[in-house]
């Protein structure tokens, strides 16, 4: 089937009687209807995604407040960000720490739980999938953690610890610098078994079963070898998508953090680049400066993704 498609693909390309350019023009004219079909989506995509990204790079070299025409200031915003803005450096550090922990962990948890769940029988499998996936779609259910870890004796955790005599006074979980980061990381992980988790669930189900029998003949003895030598190499496409979704997701917990520990967070312990952006863009209307923040964030996210997908491409080669 793929060989067949390749033949169809190649046929028009090997024409030698016309130049590549005029062939392209001819193909474009022939496929007018295709462009009509993608136009509505891609016009909106350009207006609401491509243009904003390019615009934020441009505006990051200016000062702009929506009222006056932007003034070109060169690299000033970036210099100010990196040399003059201590809180931004805290934000970068927090974002990287948070993303470096939640991204890979959420990815590995998605993969391993999906693998474990795949061992179950179909009826139970559907139920367990629901249990693991539910937190990620349950709206603002993460707020229930503020009651679980509430700072008074009525919170479940504090109440339990007090009752058992482990502590004498309630712990202020969401105000205490030592607890904030670990706690939001746990909550973020809890709510992060989302689309990438489903990708893995589905990926495990469609692995060709005859490969396992062939593998057993070749000396594969247990489930770990089976995972490493057969399942994961055939699931590389799912691993790629899962990685991208997990990494992008790990940069997107700003709203959850604000809802749990407030904005700005105590002593900026949970202040991320998203919060810095919100501060300067949404509140102070320093659009040039905040565009510089957004541009840095953009390159961080895309850079992390490209790095990891390049790494995954090497798996099994």
């Amino acid at each position: 089937m793929s060989a067949n498609a390749a033949v169809q693909d190649n046929k028009p390309v090997v024409r030698k009687d016309i130049s590549k350019f005029s062939w392209t023009i001819k193909e474009i004219k022939k496929n007018k209807v295709a462009y009509a079909m993608i136009a509505p989506f891609f016009i909106l995509f350009f207006v609401f995604t491509v243009v904003p990204v390019l615009l934020s790079v441009v505006i990051s070299f200016t000062t702009f407040n929506m009222l006056e025409w932007p003034k070109f200031v060169g690299m000033d915003n970036y210099i100010r960000l990196l040399l003059d803005d201590e809180i931004f450096l805290i934000a970068i550090k927090n974002t990287l720490v948070f993303a470096a922990i939640t991204g890979p962990l959420s990815y590995l948890l998605s993969m391993f739980f999906a693998w474990f769940i795949n061992e179950l029988r179909p009826k139970i499998r559907a139920f367990v999938t629901l249990i693991f996936y539910a937190p990620s779609i349950a709206g603002n259910a993460y707020l229930i953690w503020t009651i679980l870890f509430s700072s008074d004796q009525y919170g479940l955790i504090n109440g339990l610890l007090l009752d058992l005599g482990i502590i004498n006074s309630p712990i202020l979980f969401f105000q205490d610098k030592n607890f904030i980061m670990p706690l939001i990381i746990v909550i973020a992980l809890w709510s992060s078994l989302g689309t990438s988790f489903l990708t893995f669930i589905a990926g495990f189900q469609v692995v060709d079963k005859t490969l396992y029998e062939a593998g057993a003949v070749d000396g594969i003895k247990n489930r770990w070898q089976e995972l490493w030598f057969i399942t994961l190499p055939t699931m590389r496409p799912q691993m790629m998508l899962g990685a991208i979704l997990s990494i992008t997701g790990s940069f997107g917990f700003g709203d959850i953090i604000s809802a749990l520990v407030g904005f700005p967070s105590p002593d900026y312990v949970a202040h991320t680049i998203m919060h810095h952006l919100q501060d300067f863009g949404g509140m102070r209307f320093e659009l040039g400066y905040s565009s510089a923040i957004a541009t840095i964030l953009f390159f961080m996210m895309v850079g992390a993704n490209l790095m990891v997908t390049r790494l995954i491409r090497k798996v099994g080669t």
């Binding site: 891609f42 609401f48 979704l245 863009g281």
Partner: peptide, 23 residues
């Protein structure tokens, strides 16, 4: 175009929020 779609999965709407407001 598909490559652009794949790249767009690599960042989230926080990045485009402010300039989207301008647009």
């Amino acid at each position: 175009l598909f490559q652009m779609i794949v790249y767009s999965l690599m960042f989230n709407a926080t990045v485009t929020g402010i300039t989207n407001f301008i647009t």
